[in-house]
Design a protein around this nucleic acid. Structure first.
Lengths: 233, 233
DNA sequence: CAGTGGTCTAGACCACAGG
DNA sequence: CTGTGGTCTAGACCACTGG
C-alpha cells in the first residue's frame, strides 16, 4: 500500500475509524497495542493514545489494561443531547421568545416530590408553574419545585419576568443531576396551558438537581405536541 | 490558604469544578491561562490542559485561542444517552428478552421515507416490523426500512429469529447517523402490537443512518407506555 | 509476573484570533 | 503582532489485570 503520514491524532482517529468501518478490524478483534500502532503510523504513542481514547469514548472500542483494545462487538451509540436554557433553544431556532408565569406558591408538595427530593414530608417548598412561548405560541410548560432551604434567594424572586429556568442557572450551583425523557398524555391543566387537546402525547423532560446531598430543584418540562430533540450519532 | 498538591488531571479538574461551583470563578469570568494555572497547581501545562478540556467538553467552560478561557454564562447541559441494542437494554434490566417478527416485505415506501432516505421514489426497499418483548410483555415496536442497494445481504435474511436491530449492527457499517426523540400517539396498529390503548402517549426514537452519502436504514422505535430514558448530568 | 493502557513531564512548534 | 489554547514528542513511571 501507500504509506500516508499521520501527523495528528485526528488523522490517526480517521484511520482507526476507517479500519473499523471497513472491517479490517472486525467486531470483537484485538487490535495492535499503542506502541505498535505508533510505530506503524510514525507518531508518538501519546498521539495514538489520544486517538484511541476518543474512539473508545464514542463507544466503538473497548480498552482494558493488559487485555488490550478490542473493537466493540455491539457498539453502544452515544447520543449527546444539548440541553440549553429554553430561551436560547427558542432563539436559536430563530423564533421570538416570551414567557408567562402561571402560578407561584409556597406549599407542601405531594409525597412523591418530597420523597424524590428527600425533604421531610411536611416541608414547604416553592412551586412555580410557567409557560415558555415561541412566536407567541406555547412551546413548553415548566412545573418546578424549589428547595428554599438550599436556595433561599428564590423566596424574594417573583419569577414574573425571568423564568426559574434561567434564574436558577445564575443563582443555584449544583453538583449532580439526573434527567429523564419520556412521553406522557396531557392532563386537563397541561392541555389548557399548552393549547392542545387533552390526552395529547407530550414529550417530557424531568430533571432533578443536587448540591452535594441536598436537592436543589425538581422540574418537569412538557413540550407542545410535535416537539423533537435531535442529534447526530 | 493551604497548598494542596495536584498531581493528576482529575484532581485539577475537581479543583476547577469547585471554583466554578463556589463562584470563586463566576459565570462569564476569564480564568487564568494554562501556564499560570500549571504553576499554581505545581504540574505541567498539559495536565492543566487535559483537565480544562474535559470541563469544557462538559459545557462549563468556553475556550478560545487568544481570548482565553471563560466560565460559561449559561452552561449547556450535555445529556449523553446510551443507546444499546434492545436485547442488551432489556437484559441489563434483568428481564427476559424475546422477539417476534410481525411483517417482512419488499415494497415501495411512502414518499416521506424515500425522501428522507434520498432513494428514488419508485425504489423498492425492505420493510421489517417486529416486536421486542421483556418478560413476555411488549417492550418496543420496531418499524424499519432497509436500503437493499447498500445492504444486499438483508434480502437473504428472514429476520425471523434475529432482529434487524442486531443483524444490521453486525453486517452494515455506517459512517453517520441522525437520531431524534419525540412523543407520539399510538395508532390503531401500534396499539394492537404493543397491547396498549389507541392514542396512548408513546416514546419514539427515530434513527436514520448513512454510509457516506447513501442511506442504510431508517427505523422508528415505539416504546410501551411509561418508558423512560434516564441519564446523569 | 509482565504486558497493557493511563498518565505525567518538559519542551517545542503551530494555528488562531484579539487588539 | 502577540498571547492563547491545541497539539506533538520522547521518555518515564505507574496501575491494573490477565495469564
Amino acid at each position: 500500500m501507500n504509506s500516508p503520514v499521520f501527523r495528528n491524532w485526528q488523522s490517526v482517529q480517521d484511520e482507526v475509524l476507517r479500519r473499523i468501518r471497513t472491517r479490517v478490524w472486525k467486531p470483537g478483534d484485538l487490535i495492535p497495542n499503542e506502541a505498535d500502532l505508533a510505530e506503524e503510523f510514525g507518531c508518538a504513542r501519546s498521539t495514538v493514545n489520544r486517538a484511541l481514547r476518543a474512539v473508545a469514548e464514542a463507544g466503538l472500542l473497548d480498552r482494558k489494561r493488559k487485555a488490550g483494545t478490542r473493537v466493540a462487538a455491539q457498539p453502544v451509540a452515544k447520543a449527546t443531547l444539548s440541553i440549553a436554557v429554553i430561551r436560547r433553544e427558542v432563539e436559536e431556532r430563530c423564533r421570538k421568545y416570551s414567557y408567562q408565569r402561571i402560578t407561584r406558591a409556597e406549599c407542601v408538595p405531594p409525597l412523591d416530590v418530597s420523597a424524590a427530593m428527600r425533604t421531610p414530608a411536611a416541608t414547604t417548598l416553592l412551586y412555580v408553574r410557567a409557560l415558555h412561548l415561541a412566536d407567541d405560541t406555547p412551546y413548553a410548560l415548566e412545573s418546578r419545585w424549589i428547595n428554599t432551604d438550599v436556595v433561599p434567594g428564590a423566596l424574594q424572586e417573583p419569577f414574573q419576568d425571568i423564568s426559574a429556568n434561567e434564574w436558577l442557572l445564575q443563582h443555584a450551583p449544583y453538583t449532580d443531576g439526573e434527567i429523564s425523557f419520556s412521553a406522557v398524555a396531557a392532563s386537563t391543566g397541561d392541555a389548557q396551558a399548552l393549547g392542545c387537546a387533552e390526552g395529547s402525547a407530550l414529550f417530557a423532560i424531568d430533571r432533578l438537581t443536587w448540591d452535594a446531598d441536598r436537592s436543589v430543584t425538581k422540574v418537569r418540562l412538557l413540550f407542545a405536541p410535535g416537539h423533537q430533540m435531535r442529534t447526530v450519532l
